[in-house]
């Protein structure tokens, strides 16, 4: 097992509804991408919800590598009008 990092996680809008909470703090292995984190967090939910990612208040792609202390926000795409 590698080093452990602390991550501050925020869930927004319909992602918050699905997760049933607005935030959590977790300790997890290092060497994780933001999408890898999402897969880990939703492993038991069997959800195919589309999600977007922001790390430290900046939009990032799914391959973004996380580091200790990062704040990750998960939010849904919206195209309606």
């Amino acid at each position: 097992m590698g080093k452990v990092m602390k991550l501050y996680i925020k869930y927004f809008a319909s992602v918050r509804d699905m997760m049933g909470k607005d935030s959590e703090v977790i300790d997890i292995d290092t060497n994780l991408t933001v999408f890898g984190l999402w897969e880990t967090l939703t492993l038991n939910l069997k959800s195919d919800m589309k999600v977007m990612f922001a790390v430290n208040h900046e939009y990032v792609g799914k391959d973004f590598k996380l580091k200790h202390g990062d704040e990750i926000a998960f939010f849904p795409p919206v195209t309606g009008g």
Binding site: A13, R16, D17, H57, E58, Y59, A73
Partner: peptide, 11 residues
Amino acid sequence: KYSSFRIVKIK
């Protein structure tokens, strides 16, 4: 729904 607002930077 939750009266929540957030700004995310786009690069």
